[in-house]
């Protein structure tokens, strides 16, 4: 028998019991494959280095080494500075938070201008901005190197904020422009007659309709920028590095005497912000992507 029967109105749930069991088994297997690395890191983060060395990389903790987290956070040595990951986490936050807010707000204004003001050439501008979505990161490294050098922002967090804000605009503009297309033109026309200008219409009429797409944009930008590695490792060194770049330095520094437990704890801590965003914001993300501005 075929997998369910197709009625033309979307696939129906599979009725046949053996088929259903098989499907679930495959799904669970795939999920497990994805989750194994996470499980290994989580377990190792509470095992001591000796325990891992004596037994194996994969195993249940014999003694819970919660101290790994404290060490990873504030004592561990990365490239000769023994401050733990704390300052690098702060660096990441100092890059991610402003870049997320700036790129989201600027993207909202750009999307609003493109979708609702229809100035001459709006289609061209939109095409150029969204081209950024498809350009590979590596291609942009050298131009950014030149720009950062010329404006004097090499090896600074401000430089990273600038990069992530500007590059993020491609996505945030695309998100917001598509969302704002569902706002009727007549609203803008009525407000123009009422005497409101570009920014007043944005602030009083468009922005209050925007929370769903602003949430999408914020989640997308936050996870993207926090997890970004290539720019961080290319444009910053030493104490200026974001956490993703610092983690690599951390593994390199201890190559002779592996500290898997502490390293795992550091990885978990580094991933925590985006995991939390996913846990608490995930459903708003999905909801926002499918929402329209006005019923």
């Amino acid at each position: 028998m075929a997998l369910g029967s197709y009625t033309g109105k979307g696939a129906r749930p599979v009725r046949n019991a053996p088929t259903r069991v098989l499907l679930h088994a495959i799904a669970i297997l795939l999920a497990a494959a994805y989750l194994v690395p996470l499980a290994v890191v989580l377990l190792n983060s509470v095992r001591s280095a000796e325990e891992i060395a004596q037994t194996s990389m994969i195993g249940w903790p014999l003694a819970w080494a919660w101290g790994n987290y404290a060490t990873a956070w504030s004592d561990f040595c990365i490239a000769q500075t023994c401050t733990g990951i704390q300052p690098y986490m702060l660096n990441s936050a100092l890059v991610t938070v402003p870049a997320t807010i700036l790129s989201t707000l600027l993207g909202a204004v750009a999307g609003y201008a493109i979708s609702l003001w229809r100035f001459p050439g709006h289609a061209w501008i939109f095409g150029l901005v969204t081209l950024g979505v498809f350009l590979p990161e590596q291609m942009r490294l050298i131009p950014w190197t030149i720009v950062l050098r010329d404006v004097g922002l090499s090896n600074t967090l401000t430089g990273l904020v600038a990069i992530h804000t500007i590059q993020g605009l491609s996505f945030t503009t695309l998100f917001c422009r598509n969302y704002y297309l569902s706002i009727p033109q007549d609203l803008i026309k009525a407000a123009k007659i009422d005497g409101a200008g570009f920014f007043r219409i944005f602030a009083r009429i468009v922005l209050p309709l925007s929370p769903p797409i602003l949430i999408v944009s914020t989640i997308w930008q936050f996870t993207g920028i926090w997890n970004e590695f290539l720019y961080g490792v290319t444009f910053t060194t030493g104490t200026q590095q974001p956490i993703t770049a610092a983690l690599i330095a951390l593994t390199a520094a201890v190559a002779d005497a592996p500290q898997y437990g502490v390293q795992s704890a550091a990885v978990v801590l580094a991933a925590l912000p985006t995991l939390l965003v996913y846990l608490f914001g995930g459903r708003y993300f999905v909801r926002g992507l499918t929402a329209g501005a006005v019923k």
């Binding site: 009727p184 026309k189 009525a190 007659i193 009422d194 009429i205």
Partner: peptide
């Protein structure tokens, strides 16, 4: 001349009420 300076008022076929404002705010917005 911009719409706001033409000294006109308009009622739209689609109402065009500002969705996030109350009736009161809609009326006094201009």
């Amino acid at each position: 001349v911009a719409p706001k300076d033409r000294d006109i008022a308009m009622v739209f076929q689609s109402y065009a009420l500002y969705p996030s404002m109350t009736v009161r705010q809609n009326i006094v917005f201009g």
